[in-house]
Design a protein around this nucleic acid. Sequence first.
DNA 1: CATTGACTTAGAGCGCACTCTAAGTTCTAG
DNA 2: CTAGAACTTAGAGTGCGCTCTAAGTCAATG
Lengths: 125, 125
Amino acid sequence: MTLVDASLSISEAAERTGLSTHTLRYYEREGLMLGGVGRASSTHRRYSDADISWVEFLTKLRSTSMPIAKVREYVDLVRRGDVSTPERLALLLTHRESVIAQLDEMTKSLAAIDFKIATYKKGSK
Amino acid sequence: MTLVDASLSISEAAERTGLSTHTLRYYEREGLMLGGVGRASSTHRRYSDADISWVEFLTKLRSTSMPIAKVREYVDLVRRGDVSTPERLALLLTHRESVIAQLDEMTKSLAAIDFKIATYKKGSK
DNA sequence: CATTGACTTAGAGCGCACTCTAAGTTCTAG
DNA sequence: CTAGAACTTAGAGTGCGCTCTAAGTCAATG
């Protein structure tokens, strides 16, 4: 007997992850849930710790503008097992470059916004 | 006589700004072009240096996730003249906070991605 | 002065990522 | 054992930001 693997309902999972229940179901339908979410004593979903961790990583991929289709590619690689590790690494390294580029662009834009803010502050003196 | 204010056609403006001619017309229709783009010797648009500079700044607002509607708010303030400077400053300061938050979230996501990359690299040894 | 290519408008269409609805089923509290 | 809340599915709807189309006008070139 373990106390581990709490196994959450979809609304609990939604609360933990900050996503809506709609979005969690949508992600599952789109094939983004690594192993398929378990169903407990019925048709109701049960989210394991592993499911929650994966959703959290998935959210990080999404928040760095990885499209759903690319996330699915990654998921498909994971499903293929250890043999796909090099491909997963390549995919993440490519994505990493895109994140760096986004950070760079956003930083440059911030500088332009700060410059404009400075002119407004100067003008008000 | 000056050599300044080159005044570009829409396709030249598109080339300079990296936007499509479709998008430039769309932005104008949406009321995002500060003073209204001039028409030269006909109905054809002529983009002044000021227009181009504005499009460049507008692009920075957009690339930091400012919605079109918010850009339009900003434009409306600019049209109201100097009297709106405090409001423009407030709008940009608020947006600045959102940009900082986005940079922060993206940086955290990058760390998670880098961590995953590291596990793949370690595993392959 | 005709052809050809860039331009014009109004409006329809598209892709993405959700977000919601409807109709029905299942769990939980009293 | 029943009422009500929470869950289920399939599929429709939404919002945003473009992106494209159609039908026509304008202008520079041979």
